[in-house]
Design a protein around this nucleic acid. Structure first.
Lengths: 191, 191, 191, 191
DNA sequence: TATGAATGAGTATTCATTCAT
DNA sequence: CATGAATGAATACTCATTCAT
């Protein structure tokens, strides 16, 4: 792992533990095992690590989804697996997700959000396209645009459970079911 | 308007203009027309205004939706009006929305999010319940849970357009259409 | 107890517990059970309570000494009782003593110190004068001036034990003995 | 002179001139010729310079005493010289002495007082031991304990004159005489 | 006298950033 | 590339004091 990666991973850990405002560069470099000044050889400012973190987070999210989805299963099963994966990921990294969002929003980096998410959108587009081609989902679906709705719907449902909900454990499964149903109908699955 | 309300409204304005990090308490109190110390009689810290702001923002959002929805229109029309309203609201207040989210996420106030949104969830639940009772939407809908998915879906779609998208204007209408379609199918509307 | 006395006694308690810098007027008035503004009807500023506190402390110290001294005892016994009394008092009120000193020193009130101590000096002068008249102590003693040395010697010895010394308990008795011896010789007691 | 020493000496000067409450860190660093932040690389807080100042003050006091004492003079002369020296020193640095005392008392540093004074106590112990060995002072003297009484007596006498007394100049010599007499008897000098 | 909400001046401390090595 | 001591701007927050009631 090179120094830049060390910084990004250390930053994720420290942001996760202390929150954005409380995190000092000195914490990050200490955990990364490098000198204070070295940080600035790789990033021009504190908040400029955020897009790099976001990128890593989306990579992790995609990896989680890919790992969980069984390519040989039916579309309906895959759909369920995707929902499961995004809920699981959100549960694991909920603080960092919120932090990254906050960190990007606090600066002018927010526009980079779309670019960062693009690979994930593409993967989902592809996933939907296959189902559309096979006639499994309704033909009126616009796969690129729907991929964004798809991820937005599942993530926002998961966040409502894991970030805001106080009695989360009981509700997670019901919410997953509701999302899955909503998706089935929304995508117009022909069984 | 009492002092607390003055502070909240001034804070919204200043946060909107300068962002969270750049906003100084002195800016807020100057706009509110009160003394520096008075701020701390009502809020213990800079970030603790955030839940109060969030509350005002949700009130505004609900007011926008209620204003746009024609009670005599068909359910399908109302659905479209709701989507229009949330998109319009997000467009107007996009920076503040992101800021509030970031502000809540930066602190321990994030749990308050759900309570703050509750009145909006209730309103939408009611809206869906009527349609469900009339047999307009599928009977398998759980209105409370779906109200959260409903708002989450539309808001995340609108944010993707207005917060992250660079070529937003062209895309907004297409995205609205896609959302509306997705909702129609998702809710299982029987025409 | 009138309000002014309430303030002084509350101030002693709070200063004792929190130290000078950390003590807020609001703490004092809360303990005294009066309103914030009322403080300023009796004292023009925070530090101006200090002389009043000092006065109370010297009164307490004198009272302790008078209580401990048996008027029918021999001079030598009385001498020992005075030393005991001042050590005991210093042990009880050590923090407040240091605080009062610090409080007076921090301001221009330090000149009032002498006036505040005057009654105690007079009492000791009187005590020494009687012994001098009876030929018990050397004739070359100047009682007024020696009263100050007398108190200064015993208090500084006691402070060294109770304020600064870490292994105080074992040392207190030895120090008292040494002081007593020093005084006996210093005063030139003729037995 | 390294940065830490620069800070201590600058702090002495500024505290002397302005008092503790009125002294700003910015005054100290300006005089020391360093940056604001640099102060905190060496001392964690404003009051934490106090023990370092106390140390320097005791060093100065000892140096004054050593300078004034003629090693070839008689014990009685030396005794007089020590009294003169401590009175002179107290006169010169009276504000700083009070300030240091106040500063230490205001914090938890007061326990360090004894350690700081230790070298001075040792020197006086040695001084007394020589006189005791030569049979010049009474044999019942415990030199370590008496060294503390000795310094305490002279310093408190000097403080009473220079810190509290309004008509100090006339009284200083008389007080010195009285102290000297008291010491002669107290130490049981055999002439 | 008594109140306590409102004031606003004042500053210790922090920490992102720089730069000489 | 790497370092880490030094910098100094920047500000949230405190709290003694005031004053309208």
């Amino acid at each position: 792992m090179n120094k830049k990666e060390k910084i990004v991973h250390a930053a994720i850990e420290v942001f996760k533990e202390k929150g954005i405002e409380k995190t000092k560069i000195s914490d990050i470099v200490k955990l990364a095992g490098i000198a204070q000044g070295t940080f600035y050889l790789y990033f021009p400012s504190k908040l400029s690590v955020m897009p790099a973190i976001a990128e890593v987070m989306v990579e992790k999210e995609m990896a989680t989804v890919k790992r969980r989805v069984d390519q040989n299963a039916s579309f309906l099963s895959k759909l369920s697996q995707v929902v499961e994966a995004i809920f699981a990921f959100t549960s694991d990294y909920r603080e960092v997700q919120a932090l990254v969002y906050a960190g990007l929003a606090s600066t002018d980096h927010i526009k980079e959000w779309e670019a960062v998410y693009q690979p994930f959108y593409s993967w989902i587009s592809q996933f939907l396209q296959e189902a559309k081609s096979s006639g499994i989902i309704r033909d009126s679906i616009h796969v690129e645009r729907t991929s964004k709705l798809f991820i937005g719907l599942i993530e926002s449902a998961a966040e409502q459970i894991y970030l805001y909900d106080s009695k989360k454990d009981g509700n997670a499964n019901q919410q997953k079911e509701e999302v899955l149903d909503f998706l089935k109908y929304g995508l117009g699955i022909q069984e």
